[in-house]
Each structure stands twice: as structure tokens, then as C-alpha cells.
């Protein structure tokens, strides 16, 4: 009897938790989509914020552009460095100790909370280097934040490459670089691009690191790297935090989520394609 009851309770637990998770996903997405749809329009997407207080009317074009630019800078700066590091550790590094040191450093950095990264960006980039609150400072800060993520994933993908095949390539007298470019990268490309896009999604949604380093309440579409920017997550924060306009906030949240999902879908599609081609 007791056994039957335990089993029943156990199953209830599993069912309930899964139901809760699914309900949460449904609720969150439904809530944003339904509410956001009401106040979204082409005009909202393509015009500048207006009204008093600023943002109560008008659109979010500068924030969309700003977020895209920030993501681009973050991805570009982080991926070049992270890929080089991953390639070095998995292909060139001869000593185990050095490898461990690199891993420890990367893990340390991965453990730094994003707000502390922002703090660093604020003090060092904005103040000490005098870059000011700008597209560049904020983009680089985001880059520091996503570096470990890209490095870890890229390294994992490179290491999973079949060692016997590598050795067959070296055995032909072919250099490491040629092997890397012609054999390894084509295989790992999808994984690496997926890692970068996923990291881009994080960067785009992150508000904490850019509050202090570049995001402002209002700015036109940035003309140069040193201009301050508007960004979707920060704009959303201001719209709600200051109680400026609920409708605009819903719409902004929807735009932000759609952008990030688009990025994630690209990344998932890439991962899938790799699996199909792979084996």
C-alpha cells in the first residue's frame, strides 16, 4: 500500500514540476507577446523617443540600433580573442601547466558577476582611459563579459576533433595552420558560430554592465564609437523604473525578446545542421 502511495506521490511531483515549468514559459512569453503586440507598430520601431518624460511617446529606433551595435562590438572583440586563445590552448600549447593556468584564468573570469565587470568597465575604460560613456566602452565591457563563454565552447569544440585525423594530416608533412584552416575549422565552424551568436544574445540582453559604461536615457543613433548609446535593456529598465510608460515598456520588452530569440534560433539551427552533417 505504502509503495503504491509513494509511487503516486513521486509521479505527482514530476508531473507538477513539469507543469509549472511549462506554465511559466507560456505565461512569460504570452504576457510579453500579448501586451507588447498592442502597442507595437512600424512607427514605434522606426522613430525616436519623444514626449515628456522622454520615451512616453514615439519609438525606440536608436535603442534597437544601439543594442545591435553593442552586440556587434562585444562579439567582434570577444570572439577574435577567445578563438585565438582556444586555438592556442588546444593546438599549440605544449605544457600542461600553462594549459591549467589558462583554464584557471578563464574560469575565474567566468565567475565574475556581470555587474562587477561593469564596475571594471566604468572605472577603467570610462574613467581611467577616458573613453567616456560610449559605444566603445560599453561594447568592450560586454566583450569582457562574454569572452569566457565563447572561449570555453570554442575550445570544447576544437578538442572534440578526432585526434587520429589530426595526426594523419601532420603525417603528410602538412603544417598545423593548414590543418586547422582546411580540416578543423570547417568542421567546428558551426559550433563556433553558434557559441558566438549565443554569447551575442547574452550581450544584447545584459543591462548591468552597460548602465555605467555607455547606455543613456536618450541619445540619437550613434555616429561614432565615442558617442553614448541607447540600448533596449536599459531603455526598458528606465521606462519601468521611472514609470514613464507601461505600454512602451511592453513593446520594448517584446522587441528585445524577439531579437534575442532570432539570434538563438540561428544558433540552434547551426547546431542542428552540424549534427546532421557530422556523422
Amino acid at each position: 500500500m505504502k509503495k503504491v502511495r509513494d509511487n503516486f506521490l513521486f509521479r505527482m511531483w514530476l508531473m507538477l514540476s513539469a507543469l509549472i515549468v511549462l506554465a511559466l514559459v507560456g505565461f512569460i512569453i504570452g504576457y510579453i507577446v500579448l501586451n507588447g503586440m498592442k502597442s507595437i507598430s512600424l512607427d514605434f520601431l522606426l522613430s525616436h523617443p519623444k514626449g515628456i518624460p522622454l520615451g512616453a511617446e514615439g519609438g525606440i529606433l536608436p535603442a534597437i540600433v544601439g543594442s545591435l551595435l553593442l552586440t556587434l562590438i562585444a562579439c567582434a572583440s570577444a570572439s577574435v580573442l577567445a578563438l585565438a586563445t582556444a586555438v592556442y590552448v588546444s593546438f599549440y600549447c605544449q605544457s600542461r601547466q600553462l594549459e591549467t593556468v589558462v583554464h584557471v584564468i578563464v574560469q575565474c573570469m567566468a565567475g565574475v558577476p556581470s555587474i562587477v565587470v561593469g564596475l571594471f568597465g566604468y572605472t577603467f575604460l570610462v574613467a581611467k582611459l577616458n573613453l567616456g560613456r560610449s559605444l566603445l566602452s560599453a561594447g568592450l565591457t560586454l566583450g569582457v563579459m562574454i569572452f569566457p563563454f565563447i572561449e570555453v565552447r570554442a575550445e570544447k569544440s576544437l578538442r572534440e576533433f578526432n585526434r587520429a585525423i589530426l595526426q594523419s594530416s601532420y603525417a603528410l608533412g602538412v603544417s598545423k595552420v593548414y590543418t586547422l584552416l582546411k580540416l578543423v575549422l570547417p568542421q567546428c565552424k558551426a559550433d563556433i558560430v553558434a557559441a558566438v551568436t549565443l554569447a551575442g544574445g547574452f550581450a544584447m540582453g545584459a543591462a548591468a554592465p552597460i548602465i555605467l559604461t555607455g547606455a543613456v536615457i536618450f541619445a540619437p543613433i550613434p555616429r561614432s564609437l565615442s558617442s553614448p548609446v541607447m540600448a533596449l535593456p536599459f531603455h526598458l529598465y528606465i521606462l519601468t523604473g521611472e514609470g514613464i510608460s507601461l505600454e512602451k515598456a511592453y513593446a520594448t520588452a517584446l522587441v528585445l525578446m524577439v531579437l534575442i530569440f532570432a539570434i538563438n534560433i540561428v544558433s540552434i539551427a547551426l547546431t542542428f545542421r552540424r549534427k546532421e552533417v557530422g556523422r
Binding site: V25, A206, A207, M257
Partner: peptide, 22 residues
């Protein structure tokens, strides 16, 4: 798993926003 990953991809500001309003 995809749906769960969607949860992970939602930016924290959006969570904060929903938290505040709901």
C-alpha cells in the same frame, strides 16, 4: 529542451519587468 533554453535566453531586465508588474 528548446523551450527551457528559451527561459534561459530571456534577459534579466525582462524578468525584472514582469516581476515588478506581476
Amino acid at each position: 529542451r528548446g523551450i527551457i533554453d528559451v527561459l534561459a535566453g530571456i534577459p534579466s531586465v525582462v524578468y525584472g519587468f514582469i516581476g515588478l508588474l506581476v
